[in-house]
Design a binder for these strands. Sequence first.
DNA 1: CCATCGTGTTGAGTATATTTAACACGTGTG
DNA 2: CACACGTGTTAAATATACTCAACACGATGG
Lengths: 212, 212
Amino acid sequence: MDNRSSAGDEAPAEPLNISSDSATASGTSETPFVGERIRELRHRQGLSQRELGRRCGVTNGMISLIEQNKTSPSVALLKKVLSGFPMSLADFFAGVDEGESPPVFFAAHQLKVMDNGTIRFRQLGDHLKGRAMQIMNETYPPGSDTGETMLTHEAEEGGFVIRGRIEITVGHQCTVLGPGDGYYFDSRLPHRFRNIGDETCELVSACSPPSF
Amino acid sequence: MDNRSSAGDEAPAEPLNISSDSATASGTSETPFVGERIRELRHRQGLSQRELGRRCGVTNGMISLIEQNKTSPSVALLKKVLSGFPMSLADFFAGVDEGESPPVFFAAHQLKVMDNGTIRFRQLGDHLKGRAMQIMNETYPPGSDTGETMLTHEAEEGGFVIRGRIEITVGHQCTVLGPGDGYYFDSRLPHRFRNIGDETCELVSACSPPSF
DNA sequence: CCATCGTGTTGAGTATATTTAACACGTGTG
DNA sequence: CACACGTGTTAAATATACTCAACACGATGG
C-alpha cells in the first residue's frame, strides 16, 4: 500500500542550503537590525530590560539576548515584546531599511519610459527600491488593453484621468472614467485598463509600494 | 564583592505571566495570520510546499507547520521563506490587519474639494484612514503660493505637472516645472509650491502615507 | 492491478529559542 | 567596610523551532 522504499522520496543529494542561494532575493536570513531596533526603542522609552520584560511578559534575559542578536526571536515573541512599547509588527518592520532619499526633480525628457508596444508608461525615477510610491504618467491609445493584471504583492493604487476616456475593471466592478475622474483600489484584486473610445487616453497613477 | 545571596534578586512572587497582561497593548501574542498569508502567497505563485522550500532553503515540513500555525517561525526563518517569493519582511507585515478595501471609482463631481482661497485641492476619497496614499488634483492660479510647508510625520510625495508652470522649492533646491515634468521628495523636508507665471497650473500629486 | 509521481501531513531526533537563576559590575548609604 | 538595590550578561535547564524521513492520499499510466 505504501511506498516507503520508493526510489528517492526527498533526496537532497546536494545540501541545497542557502550557501549558493545567498545571492538570491533578499539575502542571508540574518536579521541584525532586530536587536538594534529593540534596544533603540527601549532606550527611547527610558525602560530597563527588566521593566520592559515585566510589561510584556518576557524575561529580561531574553530581551538581553535579542538585543545582542544572539537569538532570532519567534514572530510570536517579538509581538509580545513590541506590545510593551506599544508598537505593531507592521510599524516595526516598516522603517527597517529606509534610506534618506534626496529631493529630485524630473524634466519631461528625463523620465524613464517603458513601452508595451501600445501602452506607454513614463515613470518618475528609475531605481524605486526604498521608495514608498511608484508614480507614472500612462498613455493608452484607442483600443489598447492591459489584459487582466494581478500584482503578487500587497499594494494600493489610484489615479486621475487627464484626457480621453478609459474603461477600468476591478474585481467585479467596471466603469468608464473621463477627464477629472479618479480611481483607487487594492492591487491584489484583478484589474484591467482598456481604452474603448476613439481618442487617446492619458492618466496619472500612483502605486504604493512600488510594484517593481 | 558580590551579592549572590542578596535577598530577592528577581523575585517574581507572582507569575506575572501574560494571563493578566493579555488585555494590554496589542494582544495575545498569537499570530495566526502568518500561516494564512504564507499559504496565500505560495498559492498565488503556484508553488508547492516542496518547491518553495527548495527555493528558500527551508524544509517542506517546516512550511507545512507554519501554514497550519502549529509553530511560530523565527524572524530569521520567516525572512528565508519570504526570500522565495520574493517579498520583504516589511511588505509581509505591512498589510496584516488591513480590512479588504473595496474598489472605488470617483466621478469628477464626487471628489472631495478643499479650498485654500486660491489653491484648489480635489482629493481621491474622503476618509483616508487605513489608506496607503493620498492622491490629489491640485490647481494653482497665477500668483498662488503655499508658503513654506513642513510635514511632521514621515512621508514621501511626488507628482506630475499637467498644464501651466510651477516653481517648486524643496530643501535648498528650486526649479520651475512645466507640463510632463515631475517631482518626488521626502515630505519632512521644507517645501513650497508657487505659480510665478500668468497661466493657471494644474498637477496630480500623491503622498504616502496620507498627511491627514 | 501495481508502480510512479505528485501533493500535504506528521513522528522522532536535533538544534535552538526561551526561562530560570545565578553572576558581575556600579552606586548610594549606614 | 558591608549591604541593599540598580543595571546588563550568561550557564544550565526546559520548551519549542526546525530537519529528516517516513506516511497517507490522489492522479496518471503501464
